[in-house]
Design a protein around this nucleic acid. Structure first.
Lengths: 342, 342
DNA sequence: ATGAAAGCGCTAACAT
DNA sequence: ATGTTAGCGCTTTCAT
């Protein structure tokens, strides 16, 4: 309860304590090389002794930059394994702190409108945004870019290859190709795809890895593909449907567009009394916590989220320093976390 | 790219447009009842027309309150099912927005020091904190309270019942009792406990639900308890050890202190060829995503995180308005999500 | 290398 | 009910 009495030290307090002017203290903080080493030491001592931290509001007001980055949080979806956020957010916060920024969370309701973004920007609450809900090739990117809102996207502008905003993405095609190679190596020749309906750019990207790679291995893709929504239930239904054929036509492995779908496939496999990893291979996508802890543990394509976060912050840095971005996009390679189901 | 030219409207801009003084516009925003209805409408129109939002930095500087709440994010732990944050954070952000606040994320490194908290507070970056890492009865609470840092804790001050800071917690004892009742109802009489080592207040709270309830049902607890670290591996080891006894001494059900432990138990159960939900009951704690999507789906005690978040924000409101908190703590009741393993 | 003056946009206190 | 004045703590510009 000591804090309430004493009012926090300001530049003036420190200046007086160090026997210099306010301006010199400010310089000590922002352009230390302007000071004589001797003075710098004296000022620094006063700062430490008084426990001074510059007031952010005052600094923001003056510099017109809050040093805050906006990140939208969606409602947590139940019954879905795609909880990538935890991993991503932590590294994002850590990386932004290194460059002197913080992350501010906000919600945007159900509607995809630019309103909350613009409000936050107008009120100078944030300097820029990180976009993550890129499920359908983030449509927000288009209207935010059009309105001059500064942001970096996790996810490619699939619908507009000419877009100039900075983005970072993970190579879904390559990730699935990794999964296919792995299964082929394990001796599988009939490898099925369980993915999302057409219209999802990400879904098509991932699926193309399956198609391409299977053909490159000289394997057929016909009658081996199921598409639907990203739910456990659809995964289960799809697996049942794909397995409900003559024995020689039956797939021996499933590659899925998400861990959620893969968990659904495992449900079907369990009901049919098959053992994943023995009679049947299953590979998911996202390397979610659920994939890691379930029994049998799910082999899954792992997105390098930590790397993504670091790259996003790099992009943010360039954006806020008005450094020209040569090449706005960067695609990172995923890896395969091999576990018991393959 | 239009935004860069025009400088954002200020109070003065709006005042001129509406033909009133700056102060009147400020009042329109902060004390609308001070204005004549007619004037209010005119000002409001000008605000809407110009798309004015008050500058947060200026407001913070003047009012000495950032309207930001600090929330520490830890590194996401791999191979652990305890990802409660997603669910909690979303509601927290939503609730804070309702009362005009935003959530700011920060990290604190590995060391439990008050430094990052104090820094954020000194620089007026945040008005208060939400404490969530209450694993061991949040020791931070003590030193933060001692230093006059305003915060609301998710988690009781187990080690100091006289603590006066506001907190919200979930009744672990009651949650486990729920699990025990459910298993007894299903006909189980030898119900084992897989939990954490002594010294964890939360662990003891949850375990006490098992002990008490078993005794109330006239059942024995002897040789039915295992304690260790909160890992998948320990859950597996504990289950093996508990099951490696004479048939009549063998537990027929496991209640676990966390979903992580429960997932570990399921590993052992799988190896032994037992079927969870048939020969053996397993109940976890946290109702994590993994519990929901794994096969068989795990019965688990569900914490009312959304309610917790709402209560936390309520506490924050009282704290920041310097409203006296009659009773600083509030314990919420968990529920049981019944699935296939029981 | 250091200091003085001005002002960022807002609200609290005091007029009117 | 509305206007005037002052100042929150900082940085930018210009003097010295």
């Amino acid at each position: 309860m000591s804090r309430h009495d004493e009012s926090a030290p300001t530049l003036a307090t420190v200046a007086e304590a160090a026997g210099v002017s306010r301006q010199t203290v400010s310089n000590a903080l922002n352009s230390p090389d302007l000071l004589r080493p001797e003075t710098l030491v004296r000022v620094q001592e006063a700062i430490d002794r008084l426990g001074y931290s510059p007031n952010r509001a005052a600094r923001s007001l003056r510099t017109r930059s809050s040093h805050l980055i906006g990140l939208r949080v969606d409602a947590a979806v139940e019954d879905s394994a795609n909880a990538l956020m935890d991993r991503f957010v932590h590294t994002l916060v850590e990386s932004t702190e290194v460059v002197g920024y913080h992350v501010l969370l906000f919600t945007a309701g159900d509607h995809d409108t630019p309103e909350p973004y613009e409000e936050l920007l107008r009120s100078a609450a944030v300097d820029a945004f990180v976009l993550t809900d890129t499920f359908l090739g983030n449509p927000q990117a288009a209207w935010l870019a059009g309105r001059g809102v500064p942001f970096v996207a996790f996810g490619r502008p699939w619908d507009d290859p000419t877009a100039r905003h900075p983005w970072v993405d993970v190579d879904g095609h390559a990730g699935v190709a990794l999964a296919v190679d792995h299964l082929v190596e394990r001796g599988h020749t009939r490898i099925a795809w369980v993915g999302w309906q057409k219209g999802s750019f990400i879904g098509e990207d991932r699926r193309s890895g399956w198609v391409t790679r299977l053909h490159e291995h000289g394997l057929s893709t016909s009658r081996l593909s199921a598409r639907g929504e990203d739910t456990l239930e659809f995964g289960t239904r799809a697996a049942h449907a794909l397995l409900d054929v003559a024995a020689e036509e039956r797939p021996t492995a499933f590659v899925c567009a998400s861990d959620t779908l893969a968990m659904g496939v495992l449900r079907a496999v369990d009901v049919l009394g098959l053992r994943p990893g023995r009679e049947l291979g299953v590979v998911g996508f996202d390397d979610s916590i659920a994939a890691q802890v379930c029994t049998p543990a799910l082999t899954s394509v792992r997105q390098p989220l930590e790397e993504v976060a670091v790259e996003v912050v790099r992009g943010l840095g360039a954006l806020l320093a008005h450094r020209p971005v040569g090449q706005p996009g960067r695609v990172l390679a995923p890896t395969l976390s091999i576990r018991s189901t393959s």
